[in-house]
């Protein structure tokens, strides 16, 4: 603890605000999510005419219930025209902001505490850039996977079931635990000049890499469910935040029951209810 409690609270609230705004955009304008853009195609199949619509129309402006496509399916050579890559990546970025921001509170506080005050914004920016680059690169692979699954099995639950099974195995694996453990490893950072920039960027990249290793399957899940993307995103986000609250653990194959976040919510609710009750009595 180098910064004061008040300063940490300010940082936490700012990150919470950013995450909340992203969630609100997702909730209010579902067309802006990469998953819903995908949904609007997946739900209906593809025709040549309709495939060009999203290219010309920003995904965020696409009506949620606009399903002009047929159930005819699609050939691989048509998929580059499916949606503009920029819209897909923008939707993916919005998902990341909403779902991952909370997991970044600790490393961002680490960067801030170890940087000169005038360099804090710069160092945090570099950290976030490094982190985002890794996740955006992972996003290309995950989106391609999603589109492929959608093309091969439109409107099918099979991809979602398969991802759930593979994710379950992954969650039990020592590799998953290794990734989670490394996310707790906050390295020393240089303070001056180019070395400070390099270290902040490198910290973002390594943190992002371990984060991808930990969460890639969980992030794929809301992308492949035919319905209920938003709900699945919320559940997955809850799971990922919960995992980060756990301490590192020895590496082994095992089923790791978690639940720290839920226990925290229950305990905090009880404490607050008790406090309200006590105030009423007094």
């Amino acid at each position: 603890m180098i910064t004061s409690g008040r300063e940490r609270t300010r940082i936490t609230l700012l990150i919470l605000l950013i995450s909340t705004v992203a969630w609100m955009v997702l909730a209010v304008s579902p067309g802006s999510t990469m998953t819903h853009a995908h949904h609007s195609v997946a739900d209906s199949g593809v025709s040549m005419a309709s495939m060009q619509m999203p290219v010309a129309t920003p995904a965020s402006a696409m009506p949620h219930n606009h399903y002009p496509l047929t159930k005819a399916g699609v050939s691989l050579d048509s998929f580059p025209m499916l949606l503009p890559i920029s819209s897909l990546m923008a939707g993916w970025a919005l998902m990341l902001v909403a779902m991952m921001s909370l997991t970044l509170i600790a490393p961002i506080c680490h960067v801030i505490e170890r940087s000169f005050r005038r360099r804090r914004a710069r160092s945090v920016t570099l950290f976030v850039i490094g982190y985002a680059v890794i996740w955006m690169a992972a996003g290309v692979v995950l989106i391609a996977t999603m589109l492929m699954l959608n093309i091969l099995m439109p409107q099918s639950y099979f991809p979602a079931v398969a991802v759930v099974i593979v994710a379950f195995v992954w969650q039990c694996s020592p590799i998953k635990q290794r990734c989670l453990n490394r996310n707790h490893n906050h390295r020393a950072l240089a303070a001056f000049g180019i070395a400070a920039d390099r270290d902040a960027l490198h910290f973002g990249i390594t943190h992002g890499a371990w984060c991808v290793g930990s969460c890639w399957l969980l992030m794929l899940l809301p992308m492949v469910v035919p319905y209920g993307h938003f709900a699945v995103m919320a559940v997955v986000s809850f799971v990922m935040t919960d995992e980060r609250l756990e301490h590192p653990k020895p590496l082994s194959w095992c089923l790791r029951p978690r639940g720290t976040l839920m226990r925290m919510i229950v305990a905090q609710s009880q404490i607050r209810l008790h406090r309200v009750h006590s105030q009423k009595l007094s």
Binding site: Q177, R178, N181, R182, N183, H184, N185, H186, H247, P248, K249, P250, L251
Partner: peptide, 9 residues
């Protein structure tokens, strides 16, 4: 310990 409770910080 990098796999210890605090990630080897």
């Amino acid at each position: 310990s990098i796999d210890g409770q605090h990630g080897g910080i």
